[in-house]
Design a protein around this nucleic acid. Structure first.
Length: 690
DNA sequence: CTCTCCCT
């Protein structure tokens, strides 16, 4: 649904309030951070009441224009326009602060290059799309949603007059379903291409294809690939003829300090580095990159236990934790400036590498580690393990110290170890389960998914495994062609298994419950339990628990959440992650609308007939069932793989005979999550497919 | 006895 451009602030009413207070909303994207500083200055002048308001508004506008002319990309304006006029595909390499994401579409628009369709510019993250559009609308001097708009899931600000549209890569992918050649656009810009999300990787191929087809139809499509760092040769070769443009950035120098010898314990090394910097180096906050929540919590404990060792004349240390599962209120604490006489130490996951930008960071400590999801196509199991980061990632982390002034980056590895790192992180498409991507390609008419023109092709095994999964779900026929069912599945913004469950729910008569559960499974967790409050959290959780397991428990939570209108206090008391519950509600609303359009009544319900609901879920998860062994472990029925019920599950240690699970990930052990109690004879109906 | 991150 499109918001009317003349009322850009009016949002659709929903049960929960708008999450504009989200951490990420207060942050800035890579390319707009410097500009926001300037914005604040000009805002101060507009608050001056002596001047008439109109003048101060235009002053602010003039300041914006002056600022634009000082961006590094401004000098390249003519060159850029000429290059785009003379080439079909252009690669722009612009460092942080170059202004490429905000200025490029404006330059092209002003040069009249968008006369045959608008300009789309994609971002890997929602907040980036929204904040860039907001910024550019201001620079353009028009209301957001009119000439300059954005489109992200659950939120669209566009109108018939929109000529520059910022969107998430996922949104542009969905647009392909109804407009495979993207005829709405004359120029498509794929920004942050170096991140190589599964979605941009598919867009590369689809764009290249659209460009070729449109050339013959005399409706040319310009493609612009933008990125901070990029293997530009590889991209240029892929797009046959591509012009390459390099633009300098606005980054302060960062001094890199390597370890002189390899360290075995990065937590211990991080700990000593923090204290060393704190004692010896001048003011400035410290940002530490760690692989995950557990390490973050251990390190915080270590710091607090040793805080008394700091000489009394030195500032005190305050710690801030930062990871995605942390409730919003705690995440936003990283933006509070450290009180006088203190130094802030931020202990963060990868989230601070790209998604959240924190001011006043002068020192970065890089453990060189991150957690990465990988998919083993041979055994069909995902894993999440601590890995060494790539050079690209290390440099990105380093850059976080040089945003506001010269900084320091302490790498907790040797220079030799750095040179041995992979140049860039493997693209997602080579290491994740690509079933949903393959289904999308099939739905887009790409029948031979092995021969699709990938920038980096996934292994044959990975594609085969995805097709097998889709075949088993009846999304593909035995020729590998997409079925009518598969086409319907592709319409849903869901993993194929979840889409299969939704479609089955019409037949089972529990559409409402299926939508609820699929929505609830669309977030990492609806609970949040701080380390030190586990017992209390368990007590509060007990009243929701169903003996049938996690999914029915989640349904109970959802009912209770709605009965309490999603109140902050109620969520806090019950250890419910409110941000994630709000997301659940939004997903549910979207699925309700989608089902309505597909003649599946979202009010169709089976009430409390949980057996029907769980049987319906088996349509997606029938291969994901496991049976209790004499040693109290479980064995996956179809693969004989040994698995364990994750300790966060309500069925942990409950010794249920047969269970169905929504997720299997190898971490410290192979863990199954989101587990339900089922009867073995329910699975028999699916036997031919097993 | 436990959960990198993002997207439709």
């Amino acid at each position: 649904m499109k918001n009317k451009p003349n009322k850009p602030n009016k949002r659709e009413f929903s049960l929960v309030e708008d999450d504009n207070s989200n951490t990420t909303d207060t942050t800035n994207t890579t390319n707009t951070n410097n500009t926001t500083e300037k914005l604040k200055v000009s805002k101060k002048t507009t608050n001056n009441n002596i001047k008439p308001k109109k003048n101060s508004v235009s002053n602010a506008f003039n300041n914006l224009q002056t600022f634009r002319t000082r961006l590094p990309i401004w000098k390249e304006q003519k060159n850029l326009i000429e290059t785009v006029k003379n080439n079909e595909t252009i690669i722009i390499i612009g460092e942080m602060g170059s202004g490429k994401s905000t200025q490029t579409p404006q330059f092209l628009l002003e040069a009249g290059l968008a006369s045959n369709g608008s300009i789309a510019i994609t971002q890997p993250r929602r907040v980036a799309a929204i904040s860039l559009a907001t910024r550019v609308a201001k620079e353009f001097g028009s209301k957001l949603g009119r000439e300059i708009g954005y489109s992200v899931r659950f939120d669209e600000m566009t109108s018939n007059s929109t000529i520059i549209k910022y969107l998430t890569d996922g949104m542009l992918l969905r647009e392909l379903l109804s407009d495979p050649l993207l005829l709405n656009y004359s120029i498509v810009i794929l920004d942050e291409a170096h991140e190589r999300t599964m979605r941009t990787d598919i867009l590369f191929g689809m764009m290249k294809r659209a460009q070729e087809i449109r050339k013959s139809k005399m409706k040319p499509l310009k493609i612009i690939i933008m990125s901070a760092t990029l293997n530009s040769e590889k991209f240029a070769n892929y797009f046959n003829t591509a012009a390459i443009l390099k633009i300098s950035g606005r980054q302060f120098p960062v001094n890199i300090i390597y370890c002189t010898e390899p360290k075995s314990d990065y937590l211990d090394t991080a700990f000593t580095s923090i204290f060393q910097i704190h004692i010896e180096q001048p003011a400035g906050d410290i940002l530490v990159f760690l692989p995950g929540q557990e390490d973050i919590e251990i390190l915080e404990k270590l710091i607090l236990e040793n805080a008394s060792a700091i000489p009394p004349e030195k500032p005190k240390i305050i710690t801030c934790l930062l990871f995605a599962a942390l409730p919003t209120e705690q995440q936003t604490k990283v933006f509070d400036p450290a009180p006088p006489g203190t130094r802030k130490v931020i202990l963060s996951t990868n989230i601070a590498e790209t998604s959240i930008t924190i001011g006043n960071v002068k020192y970065v400590i890089d453990t060189g580690k991150c957690k990465m999801r990988k998919f083993n196509a041979r055994i069909g199991m995902e894993s999440l393990s601590v890995e060494n980061i790539s050079k690209n990632s290390a440099d990105q982390r380093m850059g976080r110290a040089g945003r506001e002034g010269p900084g320091f980056c302490y790498r907790l590895y040797t220079e030799e170890e750095y040179t041995k790192m992979e140049k860039e992180t493997d693209p997602e498409i080579k290491r994740c389960n690509i079933a949903s991507i393959i289904l999308l390609l099939k739905a887009l008419g790409i029948d031979n998914v092995f021969e699709f023109d990938y920038l980096d092709a996934p292994s044959r095994n990975l594609i085969k495994r995805a097709m097998e999964q889709l075949f088993i779900l009846n999304a593909l026929d035995n020729q590998g062609k997409i079925s009518d069912l598969g086409k319907r599945m592709a319409e849903f913004p869901l993993e194929p298994t979840f889409a299969r469950v939704l479609i089955a729910s019409q037949y089972m008569g529990c559409i409402k419950e299926a939508i609820d559960i699929v929505s609830l499974l669309s977030v990492d967790s609806i609970f949040f339990t701080p380390q030190d409050q586990r017992e209390n959290a368990m007590d509060m959780k007990r009243k929701f628990i169903s003996p049938l397991g996690d999914l029915i428990t989640y349904l109970n939570v959802l009912k209770s959440y709605e009965a309490h209108k999603g109140e902050v206090d109620w969520c806090g008391r019950n250890y419910i992650n409110r941000r994630n519950m709000k997301h659940v509600i939004k997903v549910r609303k979207q699925l309700n609308q989608l089902c309505d359009r597909m003649n599946m009544s979202p009010t169709n319900t089976c009430g409390d007939d949980y057996e029907t609901i769980l049987k319906c879920l088996l349509f997606g998860f029938f291969r994901q069932s496991a049976i209790l062994q004499p040693d109290n472990n479980y064995k996956v029925i179809v693969s004989s793989q040994n698995v364990n019920i994750h300790p966060s599950s309500t069925l942990f240690n409950k010794k249920i005979e047969v269970v169905m699970y929504a997720e299997l990930v190898l971490t410290s052990k192979p863990y199954i999550k989101n587990v339900s109690a089922i009867q073995s004879n329910w699975i028999v109906d699916f036997a031919p497919k097993i």
